[in-house]
Amino acid sequence: MRNFLREWQGELKRVFTGSADALPEWVPRLAEGNDAGYHLPGSAVWAVHGSMTPIVAGIRALLMQSLHPAALAGVHEHSDFRADPLRRLARTIQWIFTVTYGSTAAAEEASARVRRLHAPVQGIYSDRDGSVHSYSANDPELARWVHLAFVDAFVTSHEIWGGSIPGGPDAYVREWAQAGRLMGVLDPPLTVAEMRRQLDNYYRNGDLLADSRVAETVGFIRNPPLHPLLRPGYRIVFAGAVYSLEPHYRQMLGLKIPRLGPFPLPVRLATKVTLGVVHFALGRGPGPSEQAARSRLRRLGYLDS
């Protein structure tokens, strides 16, 4: 049993860090830098990103982002997500945690690096009417869609499974707007209401598309190539992400809340329990990225020693 638990914990850490027994090299570097960065302890961003709810939010964001044909074309035509999905996940986690916990220079450097990687991601796609358009991953409007889907996923997941957010959900949207600006989003929304209004405009304007490519992507997200020990928990968390979606987006994605005959399964409770188990496995208390940030903040006098 002890070996089983150790292997399970190791595989869990490998998913989030790329290694079962070593931190990514970028994590200790979060202790470097000469300013507080964009976010501080007690902020809405630290509260949300330091919880377990981003596990659900990340899946939800991927599902939502796949509905924009330009975003999906970029992933399918310029990404190795099928061959090495964990590498793509690790890069995303690095960017999120660097903007969350790093110095201003680190956050800006990480965002610039992502934008450089996005620079060659260009091509054409067909909309729902069959018209052909060009796309670029660094296009401000496409970046807006990705940002909105991200923020909506993280706010919604935390509202369902997380604790309170300092300043409320609007504070998270306002604070994480800086991440949107770093990625080229012009005038990102500053409130939940405005964020969801902008998000739904894509739906109302007919900019979203559910086709065979979306179905293929949803199938991959539903059944990624995870270690067998992680699959039962992942199935529950995936169901939680589906549960959190607005019904019209869920319908577009061809997804349903799991049911046993006429009765819906207790997805909300099962997801909460699963996140609690993951939290226990990863270790309670601040994660390594937060610890590194606190070390920098103590050095600079923002926190007591």
Rank of each mutant, 00 (worst) to 15 (best):
H147K: 00
H147A: 11
H147W: 14
H147E: 06
L148F: 13
A149G: 15
A149N: 07
A149P: 03
F150G: 12
F150I: 09
D152L: 04
F154T: 11
F154R: 06
F154A: 11
V155T: 14
V155Y: 09
T156Y: 05
S157E: 08
S157P: 09
S157K: 05
H158F: 00
H158N: 04
E159Y: 02
I160L: 13
I160S: 06
W161Q: 09
W161P: 14
W161T: 05
G162M: 01
G162V: 05
G162C: 05
G162D: 12
G162H: 05
G162K: 00
G162E: 04
G163L: 07
G163C: 11
S164G: 08
P166T: 13
P166G: 13
G168I: 04
G168D: 12
P169N: 03
P169L: 10
P169D: 07
D170K: 02
D170A: 10
D170L: 05
D170C: 12
D170R: 06
A171W: 00
A171G: 09
A171Q: 06
V173R: 01
R174T: 10
E175F: 09
W176S: 13
W176F: 15
A177P: 04
A177D: 08
Q178P: 00
Q178A: 12
Q178W: 08
A179S: 14
G180L: 02
G180K: 00
G180Q: 01
G180A: 01
R181I: 14
R181T: 12
R181C: 11
M183D: 07
M183Q: 09
G184L: 02
V185E: 04
V185S: 07
L186H: 08
L186S: 09
L186Y: 07
D187G: 04
P189S: 03
P189W: 02
L190D: 14
L190G: 14
L190Q: 15
T191C: 07
T191A: 03
V192I: 01
V192E: 10
A193G: 08
A193V: 14
A193E: 15
E194Y: 01
E194M: 03
E194A: 12
M195T: 13
M195A: 15
R196F: 11
R196N: 13
R197G: 03
Q198L: 14
Q198I: 11
D200M: 11
D200N: 15
D200I: 07
D200K: 02
D200Q: 10
Y202K: 00
Y202L: 02
Y203Q: 03
R204G: 10
R204W: 12
R204F: 15
N205T: 05
N205S: 15
N205A: 15
N205Q: 14
G206K: 00
G206L: 07
G206A: 09
D207I: 01
L208K: 00
L208D: 11
L209H: 02
L209Q: 05
L209N: 02
A210I: 04
D211T: 12
S212P: 01
S212W: 07
R213D: 14
R213E: 15
R213C: 00
V214A: 05
A215I: 08
E216Q: 14
E216A: 15
T217P: 11
V218D: 08
V218W: 02
V218C: 02
V218M: 02
G219W: 09
G219L: 06
